[in-house]
Design a protein around this nucleic acid. Sequence first.
DNA 1: CAGCATCCTCATCGATACTG
DNA 2: CAGTATCGATGAGGATGCTG
Lengths: 122, 122
Amino acid sequence: MEKSINFYNVAECPVRNVLDKIGDKWSLLILLVLKENEVLRFNEIHKSIGDISQKMLSVTLKSLEADGFVHRKVYAEIPPKVEYTITPLGTSLLPHIDALAKWSKEHINTIMQNRAAYNNEL
Amino acid sequence: MEKSINFYNVAECPVRNVLDKIGDKWSLLILLVLKENEVLRFNEIHKSIGDISQKMLSVTLKSLEADGFVHRKVYAEIPPKVEYTITPLGTSLLPHIDALAKWSKEHINTIMQNRAAYNNEL
DNA sequence: CAGCATCCTCATCGATACTG
DNA sequence: CAGTATCGATGAGGATGCTG
């Protein structure tokens, strides 16, 4: 099976790789919460975000930990205590997200108006 | 049903709104292709990308058009002729993606190594 | 407390066939 | 040429219950 060479291939493109990560539902939000608080326990993150399920928090934290965006420190205590912190790698990404956030805030009204106008013309 | 107030709520957060758009599989790629070529017909985009299905190209173009990232010009001819161009709004977004791309290229190796190391420790 | 396991739903996406 | 319509697979994500 042959296919055209695609420089934007999901598996090989760095941008796609990062976009797939921060483009999911919770990763970016968790990073932001961790940046604001420096260190948080599992349930503290849970409460900070509010409407994330326990499963998705667990899954997303694992993914962020695997990539090195978040550090996980386990205390050998009963009951268990786990602290999460954002890593320098995670921190270094956020300014670029902020730039995107700034652009988004500046243009979201335009986008929404475009979308509404488009739907009216159907 | 009550829930905590979430400033990063998908529906209301501008960043999420934009990330949801460019975080999908094809939108960003189409914008990049259109930026490089200025004007392209439907099938030209199709060939440029290669492994996108006709359906997804159609759906994604509609979505980009609705938000005002892409302009669609129809010629009343037989056979049909439709030209797509990136709008100023779309163009203004790309530098921020480029910044993200730059960061991604600089850190993708670290991320991949982290990911591999993490998986080995399982 | 900090999770994992299980089941389920729904949106996304691809393949295929058809059309003005 | 530039799509639309339909079906089916896949996987993200949520709800619930259980555990060291």
